[in-house]
Amino acid sequence: MPAKRTITLLLLASLAVGQMLWAAEPPADCGERRKELGERLTEARLQGDKVRLSTLEEHLQMLNKDCRGLVPLQSNQADVGRANQLTSEREARLREALGAGDRQDIDLRRKQLDQARRALEAAKH
C-alpha cells in the first residue's frame, strides 16, 4: 500500500511541475500580437478615442506581462526611439488637421506621417 501512495504522490507532483513549466513559457505569437495591438493603438490615437486607447494600452501591458517583456534589444534603440517620437508627433498634427478640416493641411500631414512611419520601420530593421 505505501508503494501505491508513493507512486501516486510522485505522479501528482510530476503533473504539477509540468503545469508550472507549461505556464512559465511565453506565448509563441508575442511579436505578432504586439504588432497587431500597436496598429490598433495607432488607429485609436488618430481617432482620438481615449477610452479605446486606454483599454488597448492595458491589453499591451498584460501581453508584455504574459510574454515577460522579452523584446530583443536593438543596437539602434535610440534611433528607434526618436523615430517613434516623431511618428507620435506627426499623428498628433494629423489629428489637429483633421479637426480643422483643411484638406491641403490634412494631405500634407498624412504624407508627413507616412514618411515618419517609413523611417520608423527602417530604423526597426
Rank of each mutant, 00 (worst) to 15 (best):
T6Y: 08
L9N: 11
L11V: 14
L12Y: 03
L12A: 07
A13M: 14
A13W: 09
A16V: 14
L21R: 06
L21K: 03
E25H: 11
D29N: 08
D29C: 01
D29M: 01
C30F: 09
K35G: 05
E36P: 02
L37F: 13
G38Y: 07
L41F: 03
A44T: 11
A44L: 02
R45T: 15
L46D: 08
L46S: 07
G48Y: 13
G48K: 02
V51S: 09
R52D: 08
L53K: 07
T55F: 06
H59R: 10
H59L: 05
L60K: 02
Q61G: 05
N64S: 10
K65L: 14
K65A: 04
R68E: 10
V71Y: 12
V71C: 10
N76H: 08
D79C: 00
R82T: 04
L86H: 04
T87K: 00
T87Q: 05
S88G: 11
A92N: 13
A92Q: 06
A92D: 10
R95Q: 07
R95C: 07
E96C: 01
G99N: 05
G99I: 01
A100P: 01
A100G: 06
D102W: 07
D107I: 11
L108Y: 00
Q112S: 06
Q112D: 15
L113A: 03
D114M: 05
Q115P: 01
A116Q: 00
R117H: 00
R118A: 11
E121K: 09
E121C: 01
